[in-house]
Design a protein around this nucleic acid. Sequence first.
DNA 1: GAGCGTAGTTGAACACGTTCAAGAAGGGGC
DNA 2: GCCCCTTCTTGAACGTGTTCAACTACGCTC
Lengths: 231, 231
Amino acid sequence: MVRTVVEPATSDTEPTAKGEQTRRLIVDTAVRLFGEQGYDKTTMRAIATAAGVSVGNAYYYFPSKDHLVQAFYTTVQDAHAEACEQLLAAPGTFVDRLRAAMLAGVETMAPYHGFAGTFFKTAAEPGSPLSPFSAESAPARERSVRMFRSVVDGATTKIDPELRAELPELLWLAQMGVTLYWVHDTSPGQEKTRLLVERSAPLIDRLVAMSRFRMFKPVTREILSLYRLLR
Amino acid sequence: MVRTVVEPATSDTEPTAKGEQTRRLIVDTAVRLFGEQGYDKTTMRAIATAAGVSVGNAYYYFPSKDHLVQAFYTTVQDAHAEACEQLLAAPGTFVDRLRAAMLAGVETMAPYHGFAGTFFKTAAEPGSPLSPFSAESAPARERSVRMFRSVVDGATTKIDPELRAELPELLWLAQMGVTLYWVHDTSPGQEKTRLLVERSAPLIDRLVAMSRFRMFKPVTREILSLYRLLR
DNA sequence: GAGCGTAGTTGAACACGTTCAAGAAGGGGC
DNA sequence: GCCCCTTCTTGAACGTGTTCAACTACGCTC
């Protein structure tokens, strides 16, 4: 029996060899073109041509152009997570770790600010797979939350245990807010967003610290309970 | 060919009589169709046909389909402002007025929840005239802020003067947040959004009340200063 | 009235995202 | 070899938002 180069391909990551290859080819080409010339300028025909396949073939693998952007989105997010891993290796104060993580996010996205808006547009649509709240985004979202959990867990600062459990998700939400601001930030080099991070990190730190005092318990509880109810 | 009968329509706000009339005709038709069948289903050709004009004519008055949606948006916002005027006529506690105003907003938007998402999509784009932060939206935004100022001014509750000045804008921002949640809210009748309003109004009220205490001054100052810097 | 310039109007044409019926490639089972 | 089934691939075709050169209607001056 001749062993082919094709491995068993049970059910793990590759359904079939051939298909996965063209899929990758299309994704890579699309990601490259998105980065080079932006979302709107990059047409499905251009992607297909550059990848050496037909338009219909791209649609065999991706239901829509949006789904191709998600691949791009994932790439950026992976870069962010990777950058954070190094930054958060050593423990430190909560404020330092938070600032570092958030700043890394802004830094990672920076090259794409020009066309981020046009894909942010589709991400804002409720039903879109690109929406940060969508089921399709769940892996990326969880990865990001896990990263913020590491921010919290590696922090030497004291944090109220009840808040601590939910804090990673809340910080992720804050990061979404920063991203929202960043997308609309027209200041040169998005310096205003950097300012926002620089100053809101200590602010969040202070609020977290305050929540440990007895007199803030009711309001902290209320916020947490409301958040749990509505997410 | 059906000719619409043109009456004088003595100009009070119109630059020219004829143009303004077709403009209105197109807007009204578009708004009607948007409400009837949603954003995506309503094509520019359908609008033009229903209005009895050509496609190109619609583009003579409106640079894009998005700009037509803005007319719809303005209509809804006007309804909200009008509803609030009655609700806020008599003075009351801050929390009651805030809840009433925000709830009225949700109530006004409710009929359009089905297709709100698709137009929200374009509103989220940074450059879009539909963006709540855009120059084109300034009148609507200012009207809304003015409404929240009336919420604050008519309140019998004591409020820190420094906060009081910025509070209307912050409340408008909160309202934007509620709207953001509302758009993504898939609960029946958007009851979760109503819950959000019901419970966040007392929360905001409590935070506002707390900000009067001496020990909160620094953090309040920092928040306000950061907000002023970044808006 | 004649001429002229601006405002208003038209519909064909363009490029795009997306769909689909049709075909090609590949791989077992006999 | 042959058949059959699934996976993959194609490109023409559809409907969309948008553009544009051409045309018409109107108000103005002389």
